[in-house]
Amino acid sequence: MDLETVVQVGLFIGLLILGLSAGSMIENQHFASLHNREQQSRHLSTVNFGCKHPLPDTVEAQMFIGSVVISSDYFKSTIGSLISLFGGRLTVFETLLERGRREAVLRMKEQAIAWGATQILNVRLETSELNKDGRNPITAIEVIAYGTGIR
């Protein structure tokens, strides 16, 4: 083995360890923050039905959008591409999507709470991949949540 290979392998393993340690730390912090903020915004009812049944008496309505771009870490991306060779459940990406969706919904709710909403109606969720063409090594998704706040 020449020096170049050793450096490359070392860098790869180093990045894997960095991704694993820092990635799971950031993820745990994010989950804790999601949990806390969800508790705080639980009182605001958020539903995904619209006008098909009588609406409560309201004075004002406004649209709220919450969005987030969230990326996977190096460790998870690597493991993910390994698992996808064999197929099956990609648990490493499941948490990424879950975090994205919960964060987007929370951001929408927090804006609505600040405005004084009593309910959010007809909520829609939309997910898109940022790096569809696979041109650069970024694995990231954008999630948006939008709905109509009433007060």
Binding site: L15, L18, G19, A22, G23, I26, E27, H30, I65, S67, V68, V69, I70, S71, S72, D73, Y74, K76, S77, L96, E103, L130, N136, P137, I138, T139, A140, E142, I144
Partner: peptide, 26 residues
Amino acid sequence: RDLMASLQNLVGGELQGYTELLQEAR
């Protein structure tokens, strides 16, 4: 932003630059 995002992508988490970029665009 792409360069920053590639660095952030190593450890994962929110890519704030992109969140803002897409927010402005929307």
